[in-house]
Amino acid sequence: MIGEVPLSYYLLLSAILFAIGAGGVLIRRNVIIVLMCVEMMMNAVNLTFIAFSRYLDSTTGQIFVFMIMAVAAVEVAVGLALLVELNRHKASVNINDFNSLKG
């Protein structure tokens, strides 16, 4: 059952998921949703890594995914802590309100 699905199926699915995630980052203005979409894009890339790892008979891709998962967990924790702190200052989750660094 595993070998029946061609590699290109996985790659195409991952491209679709990545495009949806990228679209979400651009369209939505809610910071939490934007962070979710970034996670979705990361997951799409993870799927590519694992698909290649399977079709090339190599574990390197899986190790990469392992590292990405750790980094993603830290990224979400720090991002959400920043968001809570920003929310205390601005009482907003709209990404357009967080432009104090803009010149």
Binding site: I50, A51, R54, F66, A72, A73, V76
Partner: peptide
Amino acid sequence: FYFMLNAQFLGVAQILVYAGAIVVLF
């Protein structure tokens, strides 16, 4: 998909880390 691709370890890690930790954090 990870299970289908013979990456069971990462499939479980995916559920633990993403579903168990990240979504709960969100």
